[in-house]
Amino acid sequence: MSTATTTATRKVHLIVERQDGPNSSPYKEEFVVDYKPGMNVIACLMAIQRNPVNKSGKRVAPVTWEMNCLEEICGACMMVINGKPRQACTALVDTLEQPIRVSPARTFPVVRDLVVDRSRMFEALKKVKAWIPIDGTYDLGPGPRMPEVDRQWAYELSRCFTCGACVEACPNVNDRNSFIGPFAISQARLFNAHPTGAMHREERLEALMGEGGIQECGNAQNCVQVCPKGIPLTTSIAAMNRQVTYHAIGAWLHK
């Protein structure tokens, strides 16, 4: 009984950076919600949604955000929490310093509040052809097998869910630079490693040498620090640097 009383009186203090629309100016709004054991930032945002009243008691529009899986495998709820881009679903209140500061990942265009438009990531994946073309007008038969030793590390890269944390933390993704971002380079490595994907290896390398490509990486290595899936992004970048170096010199000598 006494524990129930104490949990009921405990509060969570949040400072949310809001924005009403793509072109409106951002503002900070404070909220206080009831603490529940084991709650995450999503649970706090849901509490605000149920009772959209700010700290000073004024009724406001509920905070909007994106979410889907709630178990860190979809990447949709990436936002900046206490200064670091991460998934709101695994941001547990018990492990966060209060007040919890929540803001949208501003490296992307903000749609509303914490919702951002991550189309640039899709464009980057299209640019580096981050897929394996298997469609044809007839049955192409089974593809070549992948060695188990390669499959093991390639699996790590395949866990990327395009959340955009690496793009948010990268200093070279900014308005003066067209850098496609760390994740796309890692995905190019993943599909170059696949025996069927390797059939389009040169096209990916050419894209990586193009505008906003791998050369824009400045090795600040924030990407590998913020990746929620622990993907070795800096290793991927260096590995692709090697492939691109060989490709560039090789292509030049073949002409």
Binding site: A169, C170, P171, R176, A220, N222, V226
Partner: peptide
């Protein structure tokens, strides 16, 4: 030119490699 087109966020992300950047 490289220094100009680089972003600087080592205040927010003060990891060693970013400080070196």
């Amino acid at each position: 030119y490289v220094a100009f087109v680089s972003g600087y966020n080592s205040g927010q992300y003060s990891w060693r490699r970013n400080l070196m950047f």
